[in-house]
């Protein structure tokens, strides 16, 4: 029984991280109407940048290193949009997808160039944690939960209590109308990239905290984020949140039944199931 509870807890933990990934991905989708294939690399670079600033030659403590890590990841996201996606704004989604694939490939190999393909970790020692209701958790894991809650609150305040957040929602609804209403679409789009990149960065760091760092960590999590936003309804930020949590739970409960080697494919499996059972969700070239 406690094993199941532990799995549920682990599932929620993973789900929090996936929720952050999915929320960031869906925000860009809402506003620009395409899936940023390179979002996984924002996740990965966020994690590696923290590693960089905590290591040689900087040796910043965690909370200080967070600042440049976030800052540079945001620059990366803004740069992606400015250099590649902006010139392609008026083309079709497939051209964007291929270009994003190119960016993803470029960035992934860039990370491999600098840090090599070996697994790395942040090197925090695993301190003793607590045991609540038969569930053991470490301080790191508590940090994951708190950080995720914090991000969710910030996103809520942003989208529903700030003018720029409301402008983001307006632009997602109807870009042309937003422009003629006087909303500065360019600024709003930039801001969306900032939030999306920040969420990716935080999520990536939390993931690396819980597991490890390797150049391929972006891609596999992109697929999970994508599955999450499909589950929650594309373009729906809260749906992405639940979708991520659901996938985290599904992954961790599934290991009770199948081999752990396939854990990463659960998300994909969910996607296939969804498509088979409710294909109307995505059928056709409209949207």
């Amino acid at each position: 029984m406690s094993y199941i509870l532990q799995s549920i807890f682990n599932g929620l933990l993973a789900g929090c991280i996936y929720a952050l990934f999915a929320m960031g991905l869906t925000m860009v989708y809402r506003v620009l109407n395409f899936v940023n294939f390179a979002h996984g690399e924002l996740i990965m670079w966020g994690a590696y940048l923290l590693y960089l600033f905590m290591g040689d030659p900087f040796h910043f403590p965690l909370y200080v290193a967070l600042i440049p890590a976030l800052g540079f990841t945001i620059l990366l996201g803004l740069g992606m949009d400015w250099i590649v996606f902006k010139p392609l704004r008026r083309t079709n989604r497939l051209t964007l997808l291929i270009a994003a694939l190119g960016i993803s490939f470029f960035l992934r190999n860039g990370a491999q160039l600098f840090w090599g393909a070996e697994l790395r970790t942040y090197g925090f020692e695993i301190k003793r944690g607590w045991r609540l209701f038969h569930i053991s958790m470490t301080a790191n894991q508590m940090a994951i939960i708190l950080a995720t809650l914090g991000c969710i609150i910030i996103v809520y305040l942003l989208l529903y209590r700030s003018i720029i957040g409301k402008a983001m929602r307006a632009v997602s609804d109807n870009l042309e109308l937003a422009r003629v209403t006087g909303i500065n679409a360019k600024k709003t789009i930039r801001f969306t990239w900032i939030i999306s990149s920040a969420l990716a960065c935080v999520g990536g760091i939390l993931l690396a905290l819980d597991t490890n760092l390797q150049p391929g960590m972006g891609m596999i999590n992109l697929v999970k984020a994508f599955a999450a936003i499909l589950l929650g309804g594309v373009g729906n930020v809260w749906g992405a949140l639940w979708g991520g949590i659901f996938i985290g739970l599904a992954e961790n409960l599934s290991v009770l039944f199948i081999s752990t080697g396939y854990k990463d494919s659960i998300a994909f499996g969910m996607m296939v199931l969804l498509l088979l059972l409710r294909p109307r969700v995505l059928y056709g070239s409209q949207e």
């Binding site: 003018i163 409301k166 402008a167 929602r169 307006a170 997602s172 609804d173 109807n174 042309e176 109308l177 937003a178 003629v180 209403t181 006087g182 909303i183």
Partner: peptide
């Protein structure tokens, strides 16, 4: 000011928020 045909409000924003957008500039 331009009021388009058809899709001329932001459906997922509340009435209040729509007006707030009007005042954004």
């Amino acid at each position: 000011a331009y009021i388009p045909q058809g899709k001329n409000i932001f459906p997922s924003l509340t009435v209040m928020e729509n007006l707030e957008m009007g005042g954004i500039s």
